[in-house]
Amino acid sequence: NIAKAIIDLAVHGKAQNRSYERLAVFADTIGPRLSGSKNLEAGIKYMFNALQKDGLENVHLEPVKVPHWERGEEFAVMLEPRNHSIAILGLGSSIATPPEGITAEVIVVASFDELHKRAQEAKGKIVVYNEPFISYGETVQYRLQGAVEAAKVGAVASLIRSVASFSIHSPHTGEQSYQPDVPQIPTACISVEDAEMMSRMSLRGTKIVVHLRMGAKTYPDSLSFNTVAEIVGSKYPEQVVLVSGHLDSWDVGQGAMDDGGGAFISWEALSLIKDLGLRPKRTLRLVLWTGEEQGGVGAEQYYQLHKENISNFDIVMESDEGTFKPSGLGFTGSAASRDIVKEIMTLLQPINATDVYDTADGTDISYWMRDGVPGASLHSDINKYFWFHHSQGDTMTVQDPNQMNLCAALWTVVSYVIADMEDMLPRD
């Protein structure tokens, strides 16, 4: 009755709400945890102590060099056709404007195609992208490449409609990347409302002028750490089931949803197994990644350090798409291993979270999956995820203790059973 015992303890028993309460203390105490910041350093120290205090084994930190970019004061004002304060958030790795700021006419486009067609008009202007939200993977390309594409046609700055499925005038930040052979221009995200308004004005033929001022500094890479803890396997200790989430976040909100929830249900999986006095045959390893938001920086260095043991990694699991009401798992692996995971998911019938979806998603586990290690990601109700993602709204208020209990139960049953089965999951 191990699956039942895990579910009972997580959802109804003494551990009920524990991952939520632990996360609340962490998020309220530490706050947002941008790569290279003192807050992230404090968050890692906090977790190192907390995991030791929890009685987990082999608690240690693995050094990583991470980007260090800091936001400065920033604001944007529409000067024409009327005075209007534009809510902005500079994008990660953006350069600053000159101290006096940039004042320029705006060109509004809905796509890269439109920008390229109107390239002659864009020279010397601020490009405003009013791209519709289709899906995160598709729409985020505007945030990632918007500045580069605008600079290629001679723009002086870019303002990008936030990659969000809903908005209450909230800008959402995130990483962007420059290209070596393209001039660097300042870039920030703006609210959906302001992007749409400027689009409407532009379609009416109204001239729009914006003054943009952004402070931002990029420092040399900083020392940071992936945080690791284990329950060492009883029979095959060298073999590993890896459960994970990332500790770093953006510098707005509290990073409670992205990815506090994922990190803390991963910790909870080890706590629940320990509380039940269980020790799986294989080692259950918790990794709390650093530098995920800048493109899985901590995870890549972890992969480089440990890839020589790839044959001993049974499965890599990451929760980084919210810890709302869970429905099952995304899974990447061979057909034979998928059949086994589907069978394992039947153990989650008591909480109605038995689905297995086509692929696992997770920046931090992608290196391993690319090389054939089975991967799993938590599937929960993602409907509201991009309302709060990378915004001031990513706080504990978004999290729900009951939903986190269910996520923790699912995460624990799956990771424990895979770690305890006699055979590793078969690979292609």
Partner: peptide, 24 residues
């Protein structure tokens, strides 16, 4: 090692199903 060199399982799927059912 519980994983063969070619990555295939030594057990039939029925065996694995029974093993998983043991965790119910």
């Amino acid at each position: 090692k519980s994983l063969r060199r070619d990555g295939s399982s030594l057990k039939s799927f029925e065996d694995i199903k029974n093993e998983i059912a043991g965790y119910t």
